[in-house]
Design a protein around this nucleic acid. Structure first.
Lengths: 251, 251
DNA sequence: CGCTACGTTGAGAACAATCAACCCCGGTGG
DNA sequence: CCACCGGGGTTGATTGTTCTCAACGTAGCG
């Protein structure tokens, strides 16, 4: 339990390619640009972004930001998977999101982060100093508009998640979760039917407001009914997607 | 139960002052401007906003927007209280927010609203045609920045609410709810200690992921312990705010 | 004056949490 | 090489918080 609090030290973040001076623009080859903030920019403008970002690699389980820390940076996930969460004083945890390539994190109202973030699997992120990004946003209103659009999308997702947390049963939550993963994989042109579930049962529980045991039991139950199949390496086949969708919507 | 579905017809929205031609600028006297989108604007620019808004009055319980409808307008609450919510197919409802003067609603990614909204008490709202507002945002980037700031604030609130829904007990939820109402009243310079709880037990339940009965029981319980006092007209005195805060945070 | 909507309280049921045992796997060190 | 350990996952038994069903009180309104 104590381990969840070990999110203070963010010093083990390492630059991806530790060869200053020989760095090619990390943005030029960015494979998720069409999904991110930078989708709003012309090729030439991307250069300016490249000038202010650092690319970082984070190992599985390593912290990226911690709730309450000064919000100095904004991040963009470029590979892997990141989880963001909030804690109660006694250690209860609520995952507020899983982030995949193209998703951003670190927007803050006041001067500190409102949540913690840590890598689920080995991941890379690009990091923008907040001040410099703000300057860039002022220069390129299209970029700001893009950010607003992304935030508004996040807001809609958050409301969907509130519906799930407040009103869905364990079964409905798991069904919704698998479909969400599948849809997001599809958006990124990754396999969406045997869908890859990278996070632990415990992480899933903390995302859905359930315990590990209930998550595990519910997976088994859905498997028993032939609605899903549990494959090796965390893959899940959505054998009867229609049924899964009906369950997710509360039918 | 069927009644919750009667949110289709939004034709009973009435202009506040049905005397076209003699309308004074509704924005000039706007008492919540410092809390809204328009906080970003100069006096002269507010004129341009005034040119595109309509002011509407909505009676208690009347719908404002319905999930799935074409998202033609964005709204700003100027008086009263509005609830926004999502429904499951069988009628289960999750309130995703209570809105007070200065709050906005109607941001949409795609072309339809992601949630329904209805007045809790008699309220007034100002309504922006979405297209025209977008044009204005393009013209005044400060306004767009203000909107981003409001959206990002909403996002933080949504994450806090996810923590509540997924991980707090009934007691903690009610304590958090009362403190939230108190804080928001204070922001608006309204009485924040005997705090005014305008919504029904059922609405509160649908906001906190509880049933009416549990909400009622939990209020009674907190009253029994001397932590709150239930006064007439839906007022609640936070007799021991410290304790309430400790409960809300899970201590 | 009776109706309906809302709130409160009680009794019992149910879903998910808790406590606990066990398995499997990968890593480590004897 | 294998025994040990720890983390993650599964399953079982039991508990408990919240839901459900039900009754009743009260206030507002036609």
């Amino acid at each position: 339990m104590a381990a969840i609090f070990d999110v203070k030290n963010v010093n083990h973040l390492r630059p991806a390619i530790p060869r200053p001076g020989t760095l090619p623009s990390p943005c030029a080859a960015c494979s998720v640009r069409h999904l991110t903030l930078c989708a709003a920019l012309e090729e030439s403008e991307v250069q300016e972004v490249a000038a202010i970002v650092s690319t970082l690699e984070v190992g599985a389980g390593e912290p990226l930001i911690a709730e309450g820390q000064p919000a100095a940076h904004v991040f963009n996930v470029t590979s892997g998977a990141v989880k963001i969460y909030k804690l109660l004083v006694d250690g209860r945890r609520q995952m507020t999101g899983f982030l995949f390539p193209g998703d951003f994190l670190g927007l803050a109202n006041d001067e500190t982060y409102a949540y913690s973030a840590e890598a689920v699997t080995a991941s890379s992120v690009c990091r923008f100093p907040r001040r410099k990004l703000e300057a860039l946003l002022r220069k390129y209103p299209r970029m700001e508009r893009r950010l607003l659009s992304m935030a508004s999308h996040e807001l809609a997702a958050a409301q969907e998640q509130m519906l799930l947390l407040g009103r869905k049963t364990a079964r409905e939550k798991i069904a919704s979760f698998l479909l969400m993963l599948s849809r997001r994989a599809a958006q990124r042109e990754l396999p969406d039917d045997p869908v890859s579930v990278l996070m632990s049962r415990n992480d899933i529980g903390d995302y859905l407001g359930l315990t590990t045991e209930t998550v595990s039991r519910t997976f088994s139950d859905l498997k028993g009914k032939g609605i899903i199949e549990l494959l090796p390496a965390g893959k899940v086949r959505l054998a009867r997607r229609q049924d899964l969708e009906a369950i997710a919507e509360g039918a």
